[in-house]
Design a protein around this nucleic acid. Structure first.
Lengths: 342, 342
DNA sequence: TTAAAAAATGCAACCGCTTGCATTAATTAA
DNA sequence: TTAATTAATGCAAGCGGTTGCATTTTTTAA
């Protein structure tokens, strides 16, 4: 137990004393204020360097009433989609001099509310957020709206909260995926959907249904299952379907994980992929390439979405204008071996 | 372009005026200071609630000289190991009232240095860090050491920087993995190692070699390849090995990703897994379960490591004592189908 | 009933930096 | 050479809490 460390935090006052000038001049010099002579600037910076001075962001934030911190609220870091989004968010934020405070909600609305409180207390300059699957009430964002602090949402968004939105056309994603299976010759296509309280999954289910309708394929109720998309749900779904007298010959999974689990479970049930059953999932993970057969998917551009979300946010912060733009990011159909010509 | 929002940020002064008491009393009441009467506390809290008051952490941090922020520096969020670690870090931090600022280094020492500067400026109360593979000089951590700000390292650590360390026995991991293959009957075991500048990969290589020695198996130089562990490196390695007159019958991959790629590449080269070749990787990813054959691995407890790293850090912060403890987290051998009885 | 002790509250300085405005120094024009 | 500009720098009041110490109020003891 060493005695108290030398708590010598260097401040602008130390620099000021050293040079026998005022702290305000030091502050301005360090910030390259135009009214400070170059000689002074050089001297100040030299001494700052010497003394190992490092700006105290806390003090700076307080006096400027700007923290240069962006708050990020996402469901969970474990998902590859969010990991990528986070990378994009980080990158753009940092390149603009912003720091990032991150919180996971673990899909719990309660936690989401708690997190907004924390972000508010931390006085973030803006918020990037992807809602939980169950968020139905958005009043916890009111504080920010009221204070004019921009909230940028991506993927799972709410149009009732003002601010930029970065989304993907989930309807289209499902439509394209389904269409792909249809073009392959699939006649009995099933869909494991997510809870319909979430717009994302609702849209996907719609896209699925409409594609069937468009191609005049029947929409059989037993082929449309809805769940929380847990791994168990996926296993249950495939078991149910494979016990049907008329088994499906194509499956559109509402998420990357369920697609993976469905494929794996189908294989262990002895189903031949893709001969007997084609599978495509809405959402792509690196794993999709490694499994056998490799899994076709609709890729959602997480990285790009994260980047855009922050870009728009920073723009809003800078302009002070409220931006309600909706940015639609393109999806991509990745055809792999799980969906092959019959 | 709406005019300036009503920038009505509620402060303790507003509460004080409302109740005609002093701001200090309000501050103490909100912090449940013992010298404030219960009546006053109740009144203050009621008004605070009414007015929608939320503590300004920036101001609080400045006056308390404590930010309640933990800085986290990790190589990349995309890896499942780090994603899990991050989850653990988050969870423990939050449950202790700490916020978390996260930075990715992308395995760049330059960025790591930059990040420490940012963390210093942000005046974090402590740092959780996993070094890049190439960090050889650690002077960028000196600032923290000098100021008595604890730095907790996990996985890729440096014992020359004081502070708690959370690690896994990488030597053992490789030893156990290799031993497993030997027990299966493998005679010609190869290892794709990581750069030897990293202690982690050095230890793994050592463990691999020692296991061979222990079981009196020859250590052939062509079976020991070293690389940066990119996907391409993995593909190159397997191609080289499979072109050898005496092909290896077992492979220990130094990372989860390389294991995955090696298995996949081997398959496409027509190698029968696991009959002709057993594979095990040091590091487990969810994907390992989904591929065919499922990939055996040594699981590194990322989540637990992250949790411990923060726990120790917070303890250090609280005690003000410097803690140089080394916590060894247990690894786990996960036997799957890629390593099966020959 | 009054003095002493304990409980509540207030005052004011401080945390480190920023910034509008005043002041001084250096230039330029007259 | 002096007045008028322009360029540099300093002063001091914040930003919103926190906290040691003084002061006031209430309670307890004498």
């Amino acid at each position: 137990m060493p005695p108290k460390e030398n708590k010598s935090e260097i401040t602008i006052n130390d620099i000021a004393k050293e040079l026998k000038i005022s702290p305000s001049t030091v502050s301005r010099a360090l910030n390259d204020n135009a009214k400070i002579s170059d000689v002074t600037k050089r001297k100040v910076k030299a001494v700052a360097q010497d003394l190992g001075y490092e700006l105290n962001l806390v003090a700076s934030s307080l006096s400027k009433n700007k923290t240069n911190i962006i708050g990020v609220i996402i469901p969970n870091i474990g998902s590859q989609f969010f990991a990528k989004a986070l990378s994009g968010i980080q990158e753009v934020a940092r390149s603009h001099g912003y720091n990032v405070i991150i919180c996971q909600t673990n899909e719990s609305v309660q936690q989401e509310i708690e997190m907004t409180r924390v972000m508010n207390s931390a006085r973030v300059d803006g918020l990037v957020c992807c809602l939980t699957m169950e968020t139905k009430d958005f009043s916890h964002f009111d504080v920010f709206v009221k204070k004019g602090i921009p909230v940028s949402m991506f993927d799972r968004v709410s149009y009732s909260v003002p601010g930029p939105k970065i989304v993907v056309d989930n309807y289209e994603a499902a439509y394209v995926a389904t269409e792909h299976l249809i073009n392959l010759g699939c006649k009995r296509i099933a869909h494991l959907a997510g809870v319909s309280t979430s717009k994302v999954f609702e849209d996907r289910a719609e896209g699925f249904k409409d594609a069937l309708t468009k191609y005049e394929l029947p929409l059989l109720s037993q082929y449309l299952l809805s769940s929380d998309l847990t791994e168990q749900d996926a296993r249950d779904a495939i078991r149910i379907w494979m016990n049907l007298p008329e088994k499906p010959d194509g499956i559109v999974a509402a998420s990357a994980t369920t697609g993976l689990v469905i494929a794996s479970a189908a294989k262990s049930l002895g189903v031949q992929l893709p001969e007997e059953l084609s599978i495509i999932s809405l959402g792509n993970e690196r794993c999709n390439e490694f499994v056998t057969p490799s899994l076709s998917a609709i890729d959602m551009p997480g990285y790009e979405m994260g980047k855009s979300a922050v870009k728009q946010l920073i723009k809003s912060i800078a302009d002070g204008e409220l931006d309600n733009s909706i940015t639609l990011k393109p999806i991509q159909l990745l055809i792999r071996n799980s969906s092959f010509k019959h």
